[in-house]
Design a protein around this nucleic acid. Structure first.
Lengths: 137, 137
DNA sequence: CTGTATCCTTAGGGATACTG
DNA sequence: CAGTATCCCTAAGGATACAG
């Protein structure tokens, strides 16, 4: 099930939306970034309940776009580990700003409020720490 | 054609995606923020060629979400002017980060590259100026 | 456990005509 | 000019079974 991404224009916003402009893709990236999830099964468990076919589709798009990479789990052959590439890690500031905006105007989980508070205090630091988490691996 | 937004969870990312997680909504906001567009007809002209029914749908969602507001054009009765609310203006950092990411990894318009260069030099300043543009009106 | 495949329903969306 | 309405088709997505 291979399909290439069609870009509607050379506008950077439009280009980004052609990759992750849907209701699911950024949730997978969220799980990788903030929830330490790495495997197919873990993504399926998230509370928004993504369907298995949609997950497989989005993972293949993300891999094609160079945002995630796959490798075998050291223990089991069947198990696969997904990881963010540098391009994926660079989405941290985008996610951070979405969280900050959303928390300001909507009712969100308590832990999200707490996280937003940290952001408000020292955004630079939070972003730097997130980057460090992923680049030292 | 009124429909309310269904939120899948209280995750801030998920909540944001429930509002603008599609291929068109952020393009309308882009046009308001960066291209000075204010009317229905102007949105229709954008190069990605949004369909008239989709545009009407997204405008009503954005209004319902409190991101844009409508008012009559001073000259003509029929003409309507759309404007960003404070909640809409607060999406500036989100759009800015998307532009920065997209420009880094994809082929974009020359003027987008130029804009990204400014961002790279002094992001704070660019953001501040964008905010000022909208809050003084 | 990681996907694929299938079936089926709904939502998204393009084209176009039309109304106030 | 700002929408609505309609037609129609495709894509998205949920449920479930199944294959490697």
């Amino acid at each position: 099930m291979k399909k290439k991404i069609e870009f509607r224009s050379q506008c950077p916003i439009s280009t980004a939306l052609d990759i992750f402009g849907d209701k699911w893709t950024l949730l997978v990236i969220r799980d990788l970034l903030f929830n330490g999830k790495r495997t197919y099964g873990e993504f399926l468990e998230s509370e928004e309940k993504i369907a298995t076919n949609i997950l497989a589709d989005r993972l293949s798009i993300l891999e094609m776009a160079g945002i995630i990479s796959k490798k075998k789990h050291p223990d089991s052959n069947a198990k696969i580990l997904y990881n963010l590439t540098a391009k994926g890690i660079d989405l941290i500031p985008v996610l951070i700003e979405i969280i900050a905006w959303s928390e300001k105007y909507h009712d969100v989980h308590p832990y999200a409020k707490k996280f937003a508070k940290q952001l408000h205090k020292d955004k630079e630091k939070v972003v730097r720490q997130l980057f460090e988490n992923f680049t030292k691996k």
